[in-house]
Amino acid sequence: MTVTELIERGGPAMWPLLALSLLSVATILERLWFWSRILTKEREIVDRVLVSASKRDWQLAQEIALQSRKQPIGRFLYAPLRLPNPDPEVFKLALEAAADEELTSMRRGDKILEAVIALSPLLGLLGTVLGLITSLSGIKLGDLGTSSTTGVTLGISEALITTATGLIVAITSLAFFRVFQALLFNQVKIFRQSGNELELLYRQYLANVSDRPNLIKEPVERFDNPENSTPMTDDQ
């Protein structure tokens, strides 16, 4: 049985199920590509930044995080390091704000999978009910047990196709949804651990150094107009 024949036998409910399945597959593939890029380089970035910070080379730590801004963990670590001489509380707030933003972006696609998981079984059940109504509408009490009811059994079996299809789509989407949730929970642990370690190193650095250089050297822009400035005289 080909896909076209399966859709024709399943009835009209198969078309929205087909759309949901395509939407689910597209979301799953996009999320797999996203997580594969993150997990391959994440630990290396964290280790390099923390090692540089432990050696009090904050400029190098900032440069490593800046070069890794394509990764969520790089943007997370770069958020406080880009600030010139931040207070410990400002340093912590920058970490928390960056973590919230990055973790929210990692949840992209979850709502789509949740909708597919909820709607697929219902559409499958709807298609089965519609198929049963169509199959049983032509049966008369006097025809029970005769050869005229032979096609009813075939109609019922075809009506159950939508239920099976809806369950397959929902189960597959649910399996990948749980995998992505587990990866997200692992990211929460990594963000919390690396952020706490970086904040601790920074607080230790402040406790030992009173006159510290800027963590990031930003160019100083001059807004005064040289033409309007008057030269200093001896009296001044």
Results as ranks from 00 to 15, higher is better:
89 E>V: 14
189 K>H: 12
222 R>N: 14
57 D>Q: 11
135 S>N: 06
226 P>W: 13
34 F>M: 14
22 L>G: 02
28 I>E: 00
76 F>C: 13
137 S>K: 02
210 S>M: 10
205 Y>W: 08
85 N>G: 09
22 L>D: 01
220 V>I: 13
128 T>R: 05
100 D>I: 11
2 T>W: 01
12 P>I: 14
160 L>E: 03
46 V>C: 02
226 P>D: 15
94 A>V: 04
199 E>F: 03
57 D>N: 08
162 T>Y: 01
164 A>F: 04
233 T>H: 15
97 A>R: 11
152 V>I: 12
17 L>N: 03
35 W>K: 05
62 Q>A: 07
213 P>D: 12
117 I>L: 08
60 L>P: 01
62 Q>M: 04
217 K>D: 12
151 G>A: 14
69 R>S: 04
32 L>S: 10
75 R>D: 10
42 E>P: 00
227 E>P: 02
122 L>N: 06
185 F>Q: 10
189 K>S: 11
107 R>Q: 10
120 S>M: 08
199 E>C: 07
196 N>F: 03
23 L>T: 01
4 T>R: 08
89 E>K: 09
4 T>G: 06
78 Y>S: 13
219 P>G: 12
132 L>D: 03
72 P>W: 13
33 W>T: 07
163 T>I: 09
114 E>R: 01
157 S>T: 11
191 F>R: 06
233 T>V: 15
153 T>M: 15
211 D>F: 09
137 S>H: 07
122 L>D: 02
129 V>P: 00
104 T>K: 13
78 Y>E: 15
120 S>T: 09
158 E>I: 11
117 I>V: 08
62 Q>Y: 00
120 S>V: 08
104 T>D: 11
205 Y>R: 02
176 F>N: 09
